[in-house]
Design a binder for these strands. Structure first.
Lengths: 248, 248
DNA sequence: TAGGATTTGTGCGTATGTATT
DNA sequence: TAATACATACGCACAAATCCT
């Protein structure tokens, strides 16, 4: 009765509202720590002490350990007995395979099943477009990364195929830090323009009901973003200037 | 030095050997319980008591709870405070989305990255073919399901793209029970023939180095197996005979 | 409706493993 | 090399939640 039988709800995650207080706390702590990691508040290599977190959130170590176990399964942290819990490092080379897979999954986004898109969902995406316009003046990379995260989470939640939805979100959070890490050497103005265009195009595709196009748009932007960062890495390695022009 | 840098090892699972005793025990218990669930030794609805399992394996509840948490994230069990831990139910309708996704991922198996296939790997698949021939006489569904599991795990471990490898295996174990559950009303002889053909074709494709064909073969067999079970369900629902001929 | 039995979640002290001095 | 410091893993007792009588 609470959830449609065609939509399995395997994990204590899943955006479906938590029924118990314990599950609600789990989701809250998970989201907080995940965002801190993905927004580089906890940089790669940062040490996460169980005792410290327990004190900060007013619980014992036990619930903290549950959250850390989940973050470990998502590849965001690494725990070693006797050593500690540290935030995993991210770089383009090690996450190349994740990017290749994300490209293919993006194509399936709207084709495997129709997007679940209500008018309220479209309105939410519109607010993201508005936020993007405002951020153009501020030029704060972290806030821009947060907007990107909010938009992607909102969009992914519309994916009709439940397992594809979970996997897509999981892989997104595995790679999202790379962009923010690369920002200092990138053209922020150009990045904002690309992203604003993506939001606009996705909304347009959803409005006319072309769900397959949504996936194609996302795939194209993932691919281009990855290529921009790859070129950047080559430019840095080659000692070229960090200007707007990057030639091979 | 222990693992190539291009192959991330996020979870305490990952077939990579466990370095510590605790991780080895985790993997061992996880595999034992997972197999019991997927081979219907623990049928859907079966109650798993933490205290009982702790006693059986000679540990406290803590390591057991870690394993159960992982099995829950894989969708094989469900835990509820005050109620207990029960094995999830599986049926074709609720896992329809998983099947659709598995079809698409199968296509990517050998195309996203080359299969990692050594001579030893090929020899292992040959033993599966031999086991299949022997099982033809025995006609024991559970042993046949175990062979299918061993073959799939061996094949999936060759997938070059690491995240695709993990996801493919995860989704396989989410659906593997359905076949064994459907066996009593199916033509076992026909199922064995189909599977033997799949093993043979996969080995042939790997031998000639056509990695893309491996995925196509798997996709075709997943699709046909799903269709056979779907027809079976319709036949049962319609009250038709359970004979070999099933016409739409 | 209330109370007891059962089961998972939590809290905390201890054991074990690692790194550094 | 040995000892010390520190962090995670473990084991046990208690709390909270659910179900049945």
């Amino acid at each position: 009765m609470k959830t449609p039988t065609t939509d399995r709800d395997p994990s204590p995650l899943s955006e479906a509202g938590a029924s118990t207080a314990a599950q609600a706390r789990f989701q809250r702590l998970h989201k907080i720590l995940r965002d801190r990691i993905c927004l580089l508040d906890y940089a790669p290599g940062h040490h996460l002490g169980e005792e410290d977190l327990a004190q900060e959130f007013g619980t014992s170590r036990t619930p903290i350990r549950r959250v850390l176990g989940w973050l470990e399964s998502e590849g965001l942290i690494e725990r070693r007995h006797g050593v500690g819990t540290i935030v995993t490092d991210v770089d383009l080379r090690s996450l190349d395979q994740v990017y290749r897979l994300r490209l293919e999954l993006a194509s399936l986004m709207g084709r495997l099943a129709p997007m679940r898109c209500s008018d309220a969902d479209l309105a939410l995406l519109q607010t993201h477009l508005t936020r993007c316009s405002k951020l153009r003046q501020q030029r704060e990379p972290t806030e821009f990364a947060r907007l990107n995260m909010d938009f992607c989470v909102a969009l992914f939640s519309m994916i009709g195929n439940a397992p594809l939805r979970e996997i897509t979100e999981r892989l997104y959070f595995q790679t999202s830090r790379i962009w923010l890490k690369s920002v200092p050497a990138m053209d922020l103005e150009e990045e904002i323009s690309h992203f604003e265009r993506q939001i606009f195009d996705v909304i347009e595709a959803l409005r006319v009901g072309d769900h397959g196009a949504v996936g194609d748009i996302c795939r194209a932007h993932i691919s281009m973003s990855f290529n921009r960062m790859t070129l950047l890495r080559h430019a840095q390695a080659g000692g070229a200037s960090l200007g707007a022009t990057a030639t091979a």
